[in-house]
């Protein structure tokens, strides 16, 4: 319950922020949305195209990325490093990252 409310609050916050940015006179020059905490680190291993052994993330739906992070965190999905990394992010943080990636920055 609290989690859902939290999520909604955060989404509301992001929407408000986006509206503020859009309202700025320099909107055209501004980034669409700042990357949420942790999001920009992913591309250190995950190339956009992802042709190699590490899967690419571009074009994947947010729900899929968030679900993968949850499964890595719980240990349900085996991994070499993603299990260790996913434990550093809450559901809310993982979802924000997933939505940012899915939006194709």
């Amino acid at each position: 319950m609290a989690t859902t409310r939290h999520r909604r609050l955060m989404r509301g916050g992001l929407a408000l922020l986006a509206a503020l940015w859009a309202a700025s006179p320099h909107a055209a020059q501004r980034a669409p949305l700042p990357a949420p905490a942790g999001a920009t680190a992913c591309s250190g291993c995950h190339a956009p195209a992802g042709n190699g052994p590490v899967p690419g993330l571009a074009g994947r739906p947010a729900a899929e990325i968030a679900a993968a992070m949850a499964a890595f965190r719980s240990g349900e999905r085996p991994a070499t490093v993603m299990d260790r990394i996913a434990k550093g992010f809450s559901d809310e943080e993982a979802r924000a990252i997933a939505e940012w990636i899915a939006a194709g920055p």
Binding site: P34, A37, G38, A41, C42, G44, C45, V81, I85, G88, F89, E93
Partner: peptide, 9 residues
């Protein structure tokens, strides 16, 4: 600026 989270591998 918002507080970042960083990863190292």
């Amino acid at each position: 600026p918002a507080a970042p989270k960083l990863i190292n591998t």
